[in-house]
Write a protein that binds this DNA or RNA. Structure first.
Lengths: 266, 266
DNA sequence: GTGAGTTTTTCTCAACCTGAGATGAATTTA
DNA sequence: TAAATTCATCTCAGGTTGAGAAAAACTCAC
Protein backbone atom coordinates (compact mmCIF):
# COMPACT_ATOMS: atom_id res chain seq x y z
CA UNK A 1 0.00 0.00 0.00
CA UNK A 2 1.21 3.44 -0.86
CA UNK A 3 -0.91 5.36 1.56
CA UNK A 4 0.62 8.55 2.85
CA UNK A 5 2.75 9.00 -0.22
CA UNK A 6 2.75 12.64 -1.18
CA UNK A 7 1.29 13.12 -4.65
CA UNK A 8 4.22 14.47 -6.67
CA UNK A 9 4.07 17.87 -8.25
CA UNK A 10 4.93 17.58 -11.88
CA UNK A 11 7.23 20.07 -13.50
CA UNK A 12 5.70 19.40 -16.88
CA UNK A 13 2.15 20.16 -15.71
CA UNK A 14 2.27 23.78 -16.78
CA UNK A 15 3.95 23.04 -20.08
CA UNK A 16 1.32 20.39 -20.75
CA UNK A 17 -1.54 22.78 -20.10
CA UNK A 18 -0.01 25.53 -22.25
CA UNK A 19 0.17 23.16 -25.20
CA UNK A 20 -3.31 21.73 -24.67
CA UNK A 21 -5.82 22.34 -27.46
CA UNK A 22 -9.40 21.84 -26.29
CA UNK A 23 -10.74 22.04 -29.85
CA UNK A 24 -8.90 18.88 -30.82
CA UNK A 25 -11.71 16.86 -29.29
CA UNK A 26 -14.73 15.58 -31.10
CA UNK A 27 -17.55 18.02 -30.58
CA UNK A 28 -19.86 17.30 -27.69
CA UNK A 29 -22.22 19.91 -26.36
CA UNK A 30 -23.56 20.17 -22.82
CA UNK A 31 -26.97 21.59 -22.09
CA UNK A 32 -29.12 21.94 -19.01
CA UNK A 33 -32.82 21.18 -19.06
CA UNK A 34 -35.04 22.25 -16.20
CA UNK A 35 -38.09 20.35 -14.99
CA UNK A 36 -39.82 22.94 -12.84
CA UNK A 37 -42.69 21.42 -10.90
CA UNK A 38 -45.36 23.28 -9.05
CA UNK A 39 -48.93 22.84 -7.89
CA UNK A 40 -51.54 25.18 -9.30
CA UNK A 41 -55.04 24.97 -7.84
CA UNK A 42 -54.45 21.43 -6.67
CA UNK A 43 -53.09 20.26 -10.02
CA UNK A 44 -49.40 19.34 -10.28
CA UNK A 45 -47.84 21.08 -13.28
CA UNK A 46 -44.56 21.32 -15.14
CA UNK A 47 -43.25 24.34 -17.02
CA UNK A 48 -43.04 23.81 -20.79
CA UNK A 49 -42.08 26.05 -23.69
CA UNK A 50 -42.82 25.74 -27.39
CA UNK A 51 -39.75 25.74 -29.61
CA UNK A 52 -39.68 28.53 -32.15
CA UNK A 53 -36.50 27.41 -33.91
CA UNK A 54 -35.19 24.13 -35.31
CA UNK A 55 -34.64 21.44 -34.43
CA UNK A 56 -38.11 20.20 -33.49
CA UNK A 57 -39.63 23.59 -34.10
CA UNK A 58 -43.19 23.79 -32.82
CA UNK A 59 -42.80 20.98 -30.28
CA UNK A 60 -43.19 21.53 -26.59
CA UNK A 61 -40.06 21.07 -24.51
CA UNK A 62 -38.52 21.75 -21.14
CA UNK A 63 -36.75 25.08 -20.75
CA UNK A 64 -33.11 24.47 -21.49
CA UNK A 65 -30.01 25.76 -23.13
CA UNK A 66 -26.32 25.31 -23.63
CA UNK A 67 -24.02 25.63 -20.67
CA UNK A 68 -21.83 28.68 -21.18
CA UNK A 69 -18.35 27.28 -20.91
CA UNK A 70 -16.55 30.59 -21.21
CA UNK A 71 -17.31 34.27 -21.09
CA UNK A 72 -18.68 35.28 -24.48
CA UNK A 73 -20.98 37.65 -26.36
CA UNK A 74 -24.09 36.06 -24.85
CA UNK A 75 -22.93 36.67 -21.30
CA UNK A 76 -20.53 35.45 -18.67
CA UNK A 77 -19.69 31.79 -18.24
CA UNK A 78 -21.81 29.70 -15.90
CA UNK A 79 -19.63 29.06 -12.84
CA UNK A 80 -21.37 25.74 -12.18
CA UNK A 81 -24.21 23.68 -13.58
CA UNK A 82 -26.85 24.90 -11.09
CA UNK A 83 -26.10 28.46 -12.17
CA UNK A 84 -26.85 27.46 -15.74
CA UNK A 85 -30.13 25.86 -14.67
CA UNK A 86 -31.26 28.96 -12.80
CA UNK A 87 -30.24 31.21 -15.68
CA UNK A 88 -32.27 29.13 -18.14
CA UNK A 89 -35.29 29.09 -15.87
CA UNK A 90 -35.12 32.80 -15.10
CA UNK A 91 -35.62 33.50 -18.80
CA UNK A 92 -39.07 31.91 -18.56
CA UNK A 93 -40.55 32.87 -15.23
CA UNK A 94 -39.96 34.89 -12.10
CA UNK A 95 -37.93 33.03 -9.52
CA UNK A 96 -38.97 33.22 -5.87
CA UNK A 97 -36.26 33.75 -3.32
CA UNK A 98 -36.83 30.33 -1.77
CA UNK A 99 -36.54 27.65 -4.40
CA UNK A 100 -35.59 24.02 -4.27
CA UNK A 101 -33.08 23.09 -6.97
CA UNK A 102 -31.50 19.69 -7.32
CA UNK A 103 -29.84 17.73 -10.03
CA UNK A 104 -32.09 15.10 -11.55
CA UNK A 105 -29.90 13.08 -13.89
CA UNK A 106 -27.96 13.32 -17.12
CA UNK A 107 -29.07 12.09 -20.53
CA UNK A 108 -26.53 11.36 -23.20
CA UNK A 109 -27.73 8.75 -25.70
CA UNK A 110 -26.05 9.17 -29.03
CA UNK A 111 -29.18 9.90 -31.02
CA UNK A 112 -31.12 12.01 -28.55
CA UNK A 113 -30.52 15.19 -30.57
CA UNK A 114 -30.19 15.31 -34.34
CA UNK A 115 -27.66 18.15 -34.38
CA UNK A 116 -24.73 16.52 -32.65
CA UNK A 117 -23.79 14.61 -29.55
CA UNK A 118 -25.59 16.53 -26.82
CA UNK A 119 -25.30 15.57 -23.19
CA UNK A 120 -28.01 17.19 -21.13
CA UNK A 121 -27.91 17.64 -17.39
CA UNK A 122 -31.47 17.79 -16.13
CA UNK A 123 -32.40 19.76 -13.02
CA UNK A 124 -35.46 19.41 -10.86
CA UNK A 125 -37.10 22.44 -9.34
CA UNK A 126 -39.92 22.39 -6.83
CA UNK A 127 -41.62 25.70 -6.40
CA UNK A 128 -44.72 27.21 -4.80
CA UNK A 129 -47.41 28.51 -7.12
CA UNK A 130 -45.52 30.71 -9.58
CA UNK A 131 -46.93 33.39 -11.89
CA UNK A 132 -47.70 32.74 -15.54
CA UNK A 133 -44.47 32.28 -17.47
CA UNK A 134 -43.39 34.59 -20.25
CA UNK A 135 -41.84 33.66 -23.58
CA UNK A 136 -38.10 33.98 -23.89
CA UNK A 137 -35.45 33.38 -26.51
CA UNK A 138 -36.01 30.32 -28.65
CA UNK A 139 -39.66 29.85 -27.78
CA UNK A 140 -42.94 31.36 -28.83
CA UNK A 141 -45.08 30.08 -25.93
CA UNK A 142 -44.68 29.01 -22.32
CA UNK A 143 -47.21 27.31 -20.08
CA UNK A 144 -47.70 25.45 -16.85
CA UNK A 145 -48.96 22.07 -18.05
CA UNK A 146 -50.60 19.45 -15.82
CA UNK A 147 -48.60 16.21 -15.53
CA UNK A 148 -51.70 14.31 -16.49
CA UNK A 149 -51.58 15.75 -20.01
CA UNK A 150 -48.16 14.23 -20.67
CA UNK A 151 -47.07 10.71 -21.43
CA UNK A 152 -44.90 8.68 -19.12
CA UNK A 153 -41.75 8.75 -21.22
CA UNK A 154 -42.10 5.08 -22.01
CA UNK A 155 -42.65 5.63 -25.70
CA UNK A 156 -46.40 5.24 -25.43
CA UNK A 157 -47.87 8.09 -27.40
CA UNK A 158 -50.28 9.39 -24.83
CA UNK A 159 -51.03 13.00 -24.18
CA UNK A 160 -49.13 15.99 -25.49
CA UNK A 161 -45.90 14.82 -27.17
CA UNK A 162 -42.64 16.46 -26.15
CA UNK A 163 -39.46 17.18 -28.08
CA UNK A 164 -36.36 14.99 -27.86
CA UNK A 165 -36.45 12.70 -24.80
CA UNK A 166 -38.14 15.30 -22.63
CA UNK A 167 -41.13 13.09 -21.85
CA UNK A 168 -38.65 10.73 -20.22
CA UNK A 169 -37.09 13.57 -18.25
CA UNK A 170 -40.47 14.76 -17.00
CA UNK A 171 -41.37 11.21 -15.99
CA UNK A 172 -38.11 10.90 -14.06
CA UNK A 173 -38.72 14.28 -12.44
CA UNK A 174 -42.20 13.31 -11.32
CA UNK A 175 -40.99 10.03 -9.91
CA UNK A 176 -38.17 11.81 -8.07
CA UNK A 177 -40.63 14.27 -6.57
CA UNK A 178 -42.97 11.49 -5.51
CA UNK A 179 -40.23 9.55 -3.83
CA UNK A 180 -38.63 12.59 -2.20
CA UNK A 181 -41.89 13.37 -0.48
CA UNK A 182 -41.60 10.06 1.32
CA UNK A 183 -38.20 10.56 2.85
CA UNK A 184 -37.70 14.31 3.07
CA UNK A 185 -39.55 17.38 4.26
CA UNK A 186 -39.59 18.70 0.70
CA UNK A 187 -43.36 18.98 0.40
CA UNK A 188 -43.04 22.42 1.98
CA UNK A 189 -41.16 23.56 -1.15
CA UNK A 190 -44.52 23.57 -2.94
CA UNK A 191 -46.09 25.85 -0.33
CA UNK A 192 -45.86 29.50 0.65
CA UNK A 193 -43.88 30.46 3.78
CA UNK A 194 -46.77 29.67 6.10
CA UNK A 195 -49.35 27.00 5.49
CA UNK A 196 -51.83 24.68 7.16
CA UNK A 197 -51.54 20.96 7.78
CA UNK A 198 -54.40 20.50 5.34
CA UNK A 199 -52.51 22.36 2.62
CA UNK A 200 -49.51 20.15 3.31
CA UNK A 201 -51.66 17.05 3.00
CA UNK A 202 -53.10 18.32 -0.27
CA UNK A 203 -49.56 18.58 -1.63
CA UNK A 204 -49.03 14.90 -0.84
CA UNK A 205 -52.37 13.97 -2.32
CA UNK A 206 -51.74 15.96 -5.50
CA UNK A 207 -48.23 14.65 -6.08
CA UNK A 208 -48.97 11.04 -5.18
CA UNK A 209 -52.43 11.04 -6.71
CA UNK A 210 -53.90 9.38 -3.61
CA UNK A 211 -56.13 10.27 -0.68
CA UNK A 212 -54.67 10.29 2.81
CA UNK A 213 -56.43 9.86 6.15
CA UNK A 214 -56.43 13.42 7.44
CA UNK A 215 -56.37 12.59 11.15
CA UNK A 216 -53.47 10.17 10.84
CA UNK A 217 -51.60 12.59 8.58
CA UNK A 218 -52.03 15.33 11.15
CA UNK A 219 -50.71 13.10 13.91
CA UNK A 220 -47.77 11.94 11.83
CA UNK A 221 -46.67 15.43 10.79
CA UNK A 222 -46.75 16.79 14.33
CA UNK A 223 -44.91 13.71 15.62
CA UNK A 224 -42.08 14.16 13.11
CA UNK A 225 -39.72 16.54 14.84
CA UNK A 226 -38.51 19.37 12.66
CA UNK A 227 -41.00 18.91 9.83
CA UNK A 228 -43.12 21.94 10.69
CA UNK A 229 -42.98 24.72 13.28
CA UNK A 230 -46.04 26.26 14.84
CA UNK A 231 -46.30 29.98 14.10
CA UNK A 232 -48.86 30.45 16.87
CA UNK A 233 -51.27 32.05 14.43
CA UNK A 234 -54.49 30.94 12.79
CA UNK A 235 -55.60 31.29 9.20
CA UNK A 236 -58.07 34.07 8.44
CA UNK A 237 -60.87 31.62 7.96
CA UNK A 238 -61.67 27.95 7.57
CA UNK A 239 -62.85 26.25 4.43
CA UNK A 240 -65.24 27.66 1.80
CA UNK A 241 -68.30 26.36 3.57
CA UNK A 242 -67.34 27.27 7.09
CA UNK A 243 -65.23 25.36 9.56
CA UNK A 244 -62.72 25.87 12.29
CA UNK A 245 -59.82 28.23 11.52
CA UNK A 246 -56.72 26.10 11.03
CA UNK A 247 -53.38 26.69 12.68
CA UNK A 248 -50.55 28.08 10.53
CA UNK A 249 -47.16 26.44 10.38
CA UNK A 250 -43.90 27.16 8.66
CA UNK A 251 -41.29 24.71 7.37
CA UNK A 252 -39.07 23.28 10.10
CA UNK A 253 -35.37 22.72 9.83
CA UNK A 254 -35.47 18.98 9.21
CA UNK A 255 -34.33 17.79 5.79
CA UNK A 256 -34.98 14.08 6.12
CA UNK A 257 -37.91 12.39 7.78
CA UNK A 258 -37.29 9.74 10.42
CA UNK A 259 -39.28 7.64 10.10
CA UNK A 260 -40.42 8.23 6.52
CA UNK A 261 -43.96 8.87 5.37
CA UNK A 262 -44.63 6.04 2.95
CA UNK A 263 -47.21 5.93 0.20
CA UNK A 264 -48.96 2.73 -0.82
CA UNK A 265 -48.26 0.13 1.87
CA UNK A 266 -51.15 -2.26 1.25
CA UNK B 1 -54.55 26.28 -23.57
CA UNK B 2 -53.24 24.81 -26.76
CA UNK B 3 -53.52 21.20 -25.71
CA UNK B 4 -54.16 18.73 -28.46
CA UNK B 5 -52.52 20.90 -31.08
CA UNK B 6 -50.48 18.69 -33.38
CA UNK B 7 -46.81 19.64 -33.30
CA UNK B 8 -46.07 20.85 -36.84
CA UNK B 9 -43.45 19.21 -38.99
CA UNK B 10 -41.04 21.77 -40.23
CA UNK B 11 -39.86 21.78 -43.83
CA UNK B 12 -36.70 23.65 -42.93
CA UNK B 13 -35.62 21.09 -40.35
CA UNK B 14 -33.41 19.16 -42.77
CA UNK B 15 -31.88 22.26 -44.29
CA UNK B 16 -31.12 23.54 -40.79
CA UNK B 17 -29.33 20.36 -39.82
CA UNK B 18 -27.30 20.24 -43.01
CA UNK B 19 -25.97 23.70 -42.35
CA UNK B 20 -25.26 23.08 -38.64
CA UNK B 21 -21.62 23.30 -37.56
CA UNK B 22 -21.05 21.58 -34.22
CA UNK B 23 -17.52 22.96 -33.93
CA UNK B 24 -18.81 26.49 -33.69
CA UNK B 25 -19.50 25.96 -30.01
CA UNK B 26 -17.17 26.75 -27.20
CA UNK B 27 -15.27 23.63 -26.25
CA UNK B 28 -16.75 21.56 -23.48
CA UNK B 29 -15.65 18.00 -22.89
CA UNK B 30 -17.70 15.24 -21.34
CA UNK B 31 -16.12 12.47 -19.33
CA UNK B 32 -17.40 9.58 -17.27
CA UNK B 33 -15.92 8.70 -13.90
CA UNK B 34 -16.72 5.41 -12.24
CA UNK B 35 -16.98 4.87 -8.51
CA UNK B 36 -16.85 1.09 -8.27
CA UNK B 37 -17.62 -0.09 -4.74
CA UNK B 38 -17.09 -3.55 -3.37
CA UNK B 39 -16.49 -5.30 -0.07
CA UNK B 40 -13.23 -7.15 0.37
CA UNK B 41 -12.82 -9.22 3.52
CA UNK B 42 -15.42 -7.16 5.34
CA UNK B 43 -13.89 -3.83 4.32
CA UNK B 44 -15.76 -1.58 1.90
CA UNK B 45 -13.45 -0.46 -0.89
CA UNK B 46 -13.43 1.75 -3.97
CA UNK B 47 -11.38 1.22 -7.12
CA UNK B 48 -8.71 3.88 -7.67
CA UNK B 49 -6.00 4.36 -10.26
CA UNK B 50 -2.85 6.47 -10.18
CA UNK B 51 -2.56 8.95 -13.00
CA UNK B 52 0.53 8.50 -15.15
CA UNK B 53 -0.05 11.55 -17.33
CA UNK B 54 -0.85 15.20 -16.74
CA UNK B 55 -2.84 16.83 -15.42
CA UNK B 56 -2.45 15.81 -11.78
CA UNK B 57 0.09 13.15 -12.67
CA UNK B 58 0.84 10.87 -9.72
CA UNK B 59 -2.45 11.55 -7.95
CA UNK B 60 -4.98 8.85 -7.26
CA UNK B 61 -8.27 9.17 -9.10
CA UNK B 62 -11.36 7.30 -10.11
CA UNK B 63 -11.20 5.40 -13.38
CA UNK B 64 -12.56 7.69 -16.03
CA UNK B 65 -12.24 8.92 -19.54
CA UNK B 66 -13.76 10.97 -22.29
CA UNK B 67 -17.06 9.91 -23.76
CA UNK B 68 -16.50 8.90 -27.37
CA UNK B 69 -18.90 11.11 -29.25
CA UNK B 70 -18.21 9.62 -32.67
CA UNK B 71 -16.46 6.63 -34.17
CA UNK B 72 -12.76 7.37 -34.31
CA UNK B 73 -9.27 5.91 -34.20
CA UNK B 74 -9.62 4.91 -30.54
CA UNK B 75 -12.73 2.84 -31.19
CA UNK B 76 -16.42 3.12 -31.89
CA UNK B 77 -18.61 5.80 -30.34
CA UNK B 78 -20.28 5.09 -27.00
CA UNK B 79 -23.97 4.62 -27.80
CA UNK B 80 -24.97 5.90 -24.38
CA UNK B 81 -23.33 7.09 -21.18
CA UNK B 82 -23.58 3.74 -19.35
CA UNK B 83 -21.68 2.13 -22.22
CA UNK B 84 -18.90 4.63 -21.69
CA UNK B 85 -18.82 3.87 -17.98
CA UNK B 86 -18.56 0.13 -18.55
CA UNK B 87 -15.88 0.61 -21.18
CA UNK B 88 -13.81 2.73 -18.81
CA UNK B 89 -14.19 0.27 -15.98
CA UNK B 90 -13.41 -2.76 -18.14
CA UNK B 91 -9.99 -1.27 -18.84
CA UNK B 92 -9.17 -1.64 -15.13
CA UNK B 93 -10.72 -4.83 -13.90
CA UNK B 94 -12.67 -7.88 -14.99
CA UNK B 95 -16.41 -7.30 -15.04
CA UNK B 96 -18.72 -9.98 -13.68
CA UNK B 97 -21.80 -10.79 -15.69
CA UNK B 98 -24.11 -9.49 -12.97
CA UNK B 99 -23.21 -5.94 -12.08
CA UNK B 100 -25.18 -3.06 -10.69
CA UNK B 101 -24.59 0.15 -12.62
CA UNK B 102 -26.39 3.40 -11.96
CA UNK B 103 -25.80 7.03 -12.61
CA UNK B 104 -24.57 8.92 -9.57
CA UNK B 105 -24.54 12.57 -10.57
CA UNK B 106 -22.81 15.06 -12.82
CA UNK B 107 -20.08 17.49 -11.84
CA UNK B 108 -19.40 20.56 -13.91
CA UNK B 109 -17.91 23.41 -11.90
CA UNK B 110 -15.91 25.72 -14.09
CA UNK B 111 -12.58 25.14 -12.37
CA UNK B 112 -12.80 21.44 -11.63
CA UNK B 113 -10.26 20.60 -14.35
CA UNK B 114 -7.37 22.85 -15.37
CA UNK B 115 -7.44 21.83 -19.05
CA UNK B 116 -10.83 23.10 -20.08
CA UNK B 117 -14.46 23.04 -19.14
CA UNK B 118 -15.01 19.38 -18.34
CA UNK B 119 -18.39 18.04 -17.34
CA UNK B 120 -18.10 14.64 -15.76
CA UNK B 121 -20.94 12.16 -15.42
CA UNK B 122 -20.19 9.92 -12.45
CA UNK B 123 -21.44 6.35 -12.30
CA UNK B 124 -21.85 4.13 -9.29
CA UNK B 125 -21.09 0.44 -9.49
CA UNK B 126 -21.77 -2.09 -6.76
CA UNK B 127 -19.99 -5.37 -7.28
CA UNK B 128 -19.21 -8.56 -5.40
CA UNK B 129 -15.60 -9.18 -4.44
CA UNK B 130 -13.68 -8.58 -7.69
CA UNK B 131 -10.15 -9.66 -8.55
CA UNK B 132 -7.16 -7.37 -8.22
CA UNK B 133 -7.35 -4.64 -10.85
CA UNK B 134 -4.74 -4.24 -13.56
CA UNK B 135 -3.21 -1.01 -14.84
CA UNK B 136 -4.62 0.38 -18.04
CA UNK B 137 -4.06 3.37 -20.28
CA UNK B 138 -3.28 6.59 -18.47
CA UNK B 139 -2.42 5.01 -15.13
CA UNK B 140 0.55 3.26 -13.59
CA UNK B 141 -1.22 1.63 -10.64
CA UNK B 142 -4.69 0.45 -9.68
CA UNK B 143 -5.94 -0.63 -6.28
CA UNK B 144 -8.99 -1.39 -4.20
CA UNK B 145 -8.75 1.22 -1.46
CA UNK B 146 -10.79 1.14 1.77
CA UNK B 147 -13.22 4.02 2.13
CA UNK B 148 -11.75 4.74 5.53
CA UNK B 149 -8.48 5.84 3.94
CA UNK B 150 -10.16 8.63 2.01
CA UNK B 151 -11.45 12.00 3.06
CA UNK B 152 -15.10 12.91 2.91
CA UNK B 153 -14.87 15.32 0.03
CA UNK B 154 -15.52 18.28 2.29
CA UNK B 155 -12.15 19.82 1.74
CA UNK B 156 -10.77 18.50 5.01
CA UNK B 157 -7.39 17.05 4.18
CA UNK B 158 -7.79 13.67 5.79
CA UNK B 159 -6.51 10.44 4.36
CA UNK B 160 -5.21 9.83 0.85
CA UNK B 161 -5.86 12.90 -1.32
CA UNK B 162 -7.55 12.40 -4.67
CA UNK B 163 -7.25 14.25 -7.97
CA UNK B 164 -9.77 16.89 -9.09
CA UNK B 165 -13.02 16.69 -7.12
CA UNK B 166 -12.91 12.91 -6.91
CA UNK B 167 -13.00 12.86 -3.11
CA UNK B 168 -16.38 14.54 -3.40
CA UNK B 169 -17.55 11.97 -5.93
CA UNK B 170 -16.48 9.08 -3.72
CA UNK B 171 -18.24 10.65 -0.75
CA UNK B 172 -21.41 11.01 -2.81
CA UNK B 173 -21.09 7.42 -4.01
CA UNK B 174 -20.72 6.10 -0.48
CA UNK B 175 -23.70 8.08 0.73
CA UNK B 176 -25.77 6.84 -2.21
CA UNK B 177 -24.83 3.24 -1.44
CA UNK B 178 -25.67 3.67 2.25
CA UNK B 179 -29.04 5.12 1.50
CA UNK B 180 -29.90 2.64 -1.26
CA UNK B 181 -29.39 -0.21 1.21
CA UNK B 182 -32.26 1.20 3.21
CA UNK B 183 -34.88 1.26 0.51
CA UNK B 184 -33.81 -1.33 -2.04
CA UNK B 185 -32.65 -4.94 -2.13
CA UNK B 186 -29.32 -3.80 -3.50
CA UNK B 187 -27.20 -5.28 -0.74
CA UNK B 188 -27.23 -8.53 -2.71
CA UNK B 189 -25.20 -6.78 -5.44
CA UNK B 190 -22.20 -7.02 -3.10
CA UNK B 191 -22.63 -10.78 -2.70
CA UNK B 192 -22.05 -13.88 -4.82
CA UNK B 193 -25.09 -15.61 -6.38
CA UNK B 194 -25.85 -17.55 -3.20
CA UNK B 195 -25.22 -16.28 0.28
CA UNK B 196 -26.30 -16.58 3.89
CA UNK B 197 -28.38 -14.17 5.93
CA UNK B 198 -25.29 -13.53 8.03
CA UNK B 199 -23.30 -12.53 4.94
CA UNK B 200 -26.13 -10.18 3.98
CA UNK B 201 -26.10 -8.67 7.45
CA UNK B 202 -22.35 -8.19 7.24
CA UNK B 203 -22.84 -6.19 4.05
CA UNK B 204 -25.15 -3.83 5.89
CA UNK B 205 -22.78 -3.61 8.83
CA UNK B 206 -19.79 -2.92 6.60
CA UNK B 207 -21.48 -0.27 4.47
CA UNK B 208 -23.27 1.46 7.33
CA UNK B 209 -20.45 1.01 9.81
CA UNK B 210 -22.86 -0.19 12.49
CA UNK B 211 -23.79 -3.42 14.26
CA UNK B 212 -27.20 -4.92 13.74
CA UNK B 213 -29.18 -7.26 15.97
CA UNK B 214 -28.80 -10.55 14.12
CA UNK B 215 -32.07 -12.14 15.25
CA UNK B 216 -34.14 -9.10 14.31
CA UNK B 217 -32.29 -8.73 11.01
CA UNK B 218 -33.05 -12.37 10.22
CA UNK B 219 -36.73 -11.89 10.95
CA UNK B 220 -36.93 -8.70 8.93
CA UNK B 221 -35.25 -10.14 5.84
CA UNK B 222 -37.48 -13.20 5.75
CA UNK B 223 -40.57 -11.07 6.34
CA UNK B 224 -39.76 -8.83 3.37
CA UNK B 225 -41.28 -10.63 0.42
CA UNK B 226 -38.99 -10.89 -2.58
CA UNK B 227 -35.79 -9.85 -0.86
CA UNK B 228 -34.25 -13.34 -0.78
CA UNK B 229 -35.27 -16.77 -2.03
CA UNK B 230 -34.44 -19.98 -0.22
CA UNK B 231 -32.26 -22.28 -2.32
CA UNK B 232 -33.06 -25.22 -0.06
CA UNK B 233 -29.37 -25.85 0.50
CA UNK B 234 -27.03 -25.34 3.42
CA UNK B 235 -23.54 -23.90 3.42
CA UNK B 236 -20.69 -26.41 3.64
CA UNK B 237 -20.00 -25.46 7.22
CA UNK B 238 -20.76 -22.96 9.92
CA UNK B 239 -18.39 -20.37 11.31
CA UNK B 240 -14.65 -20.81 11.86
CA UNK B 241 -15.13 -22.14 15.38
CA UNK B 242 -18.06 -24.40 14.71
CA UNK B 243 -21.72 -23.57 14.63
CA UNK B 244 -24.87 -24.51 12.83
CA UNK B 245 -24.64 -24.71 9.04
CA UNK B 246 -26.52 -21.71 7.67
CA UNK B 247 -29.14 -21.82 4.97
CA UNK B 248 -28.20 -20.49 1.51
CA UNK B 249 -30.33 -17.90 -0.26
CA UNK B 250 -30.24 -16.14 -3.60
CA UNK B 251 -31.41 -12.64 -4.45
CA UNK B 252 -35.17 -12.38 -4.89
CA UNK B 253 -36.94 -10.38 -7.53
CA UNK B 254 -37.85 -7.39 -5.39
CA UNK B 255 -36.16 -4.10 -6.23
CA UNK B 256 -37.58 -1.90 -3.51
CA UNK B 257 -38.17 -2.82 0.11
CA UNK B 258 -41.59 -2.24 1.61
CA UNK B 259 -41.23 -1.32 4.35
CA UNK B 260 -37.64 -0.10 4.28
CA UNK B 261 -34.80 -1.25 6.51
CA UNK B 262 -33.69 1.90 8.25
CA UNK B 263 -30.36 2.61 9.86
CA UNK B 264 -29.97 4.77 12.93
CA UNK B 265 -33.48 5.27 14.40
CA UNK B 266 -32.53 6.26 17.94
C1' DG C 1 -17.46 -40.37 22.37
C1' DT C 2 -18.36 -36.34 25.43
C1' DG C 3 -18.75 -31.75 26.71
C1' DA C 4 -17.82 -26.95 25.97
C1' DG C 5 -18.02 -23.35 22.75
C1' DT C 6 -19.94 -21.29 18.40
C1' DT C 7 -23.23 -19.99 15.11
C1' DT C 8 -27.85 -20.06 13.16
C1' DT C 9 -32.65 -19.98 13.88
C1' DT C 10 -36.85 -19.43 16.41
C1' DC C 11 -39.49 -17.56 20.19
C1' DT C 12 -41.24 -14.09 23.69
C1' DC C 13 -42.66 -9.75 25.22
C1' DA C 14 -42.96 -4.91 25.92
C1' DA C 15 -42.86 -0.55 23.41
C1' DC C 16 -43.96 1.84 19.58
C1' DC C 17 -46.23 2.99 15.17
C1' DT C 18 -50.09 2.75 11.86
C1' DG C 19 -54.85 2.47 9.94
C1' DA C 20 -59.61 3.32 10.75
C1' DG C 21 -63.12 5.42 12.85
C1' DA C 22 -65.38 8.24 16.57
C1' DT C 23 -65.55 12.43 19.16
C1' DG C 24 -65.10 17.16 20.30
C1' DA C 25 -64.00 22.16 19.11
C1' DA C 26 -64.39 26.23 16.32
C1' DT C 27 -66.44 28.65 12.69
C1' DT C 28 -69.60 29.90 8.65
C1' DT C 29 -73.98 29.64 6.26
C1' DA C 30 -79.06 28.98 6.07
C1' DT D 1 -80.42 29.22 16.41
C1' DA D 2 -79.67 24.92 13.88
C1' DA D 3 -77.11 22.58 10.47
C1' DA D 4 -73.14 21.92 7.91
C1' DT D 5 -68.19 22.20 7.53
C1' DT D 6 -63.54 21.94 8.81
C1' DC D 7 -59.85 21.32 12.12
C1' DA D 8 -57.99 18.87 15.95
C1' DT D 9 -57.82 15.17 19.33
C1' DC D 10 -58.83 10.58 21.12
C1' DT D 11 -59.43 5.47 21.11
C1' DC D 12 -58.36 0.95 19.92
C1' DA D 13 -57.06 -3.10 17.32
C1' DG D 14 -53.33 -4.87 14.54
C1' DG D 15 -48.79 -4.85 13.02
C1' DT D 16 -43.74 -3.84 13.44
C1' DT D 17 -39.53 -3.11 16.07
C1' DG D 18 -35.94 -3.61 19.74
C1' DA D 19 -33.94 -6.53 23.14
C1' DG D 20 -33.07 -10.66 25.04
C1' DA D 21 -33.75 -15.76 25.90
C1' DA D 22 -33.89 -20.24 24.24
C1' DA D 23 -33.49 -23.97 21.07
C1' DA D 24 -31.17 -26.26 17.17
C1' DA D 25 -27.17 -27.75 14.73
C1' DC D 26 -22.65 -27.89 14.27
C1' DT D 27 -17.02 -28.05 15.40
C1' DC D 28 -13.26 -28.72 18.22
C1' DA D 29 -10.50 -30.23 22.20
C1' DC D 30 -9.97 -33.71 25.34
Amino acid sequence: METGETPPHDDGERRFLDAYDPRAFAPTAVTVDVAALTIRAGTPCVLLTRRSAPPQRGWWALPGGFVRAQDGPDGPADPDLPDAALRVLSEKTALPCELHLEQLRTYGARDRDPRMRIVSVAYLILAPDLPEPHVGRGSDAAEWVPWSELGHGDGARSGRPLAFDHARIVADAVERARSKLEYTALATAFLPPTFTITALREVYEAVWGTRLHSANFHRKILATRGFVEDTGELADRGGPGGGRRPRLYRAGGAAVLHPPLLRGTP
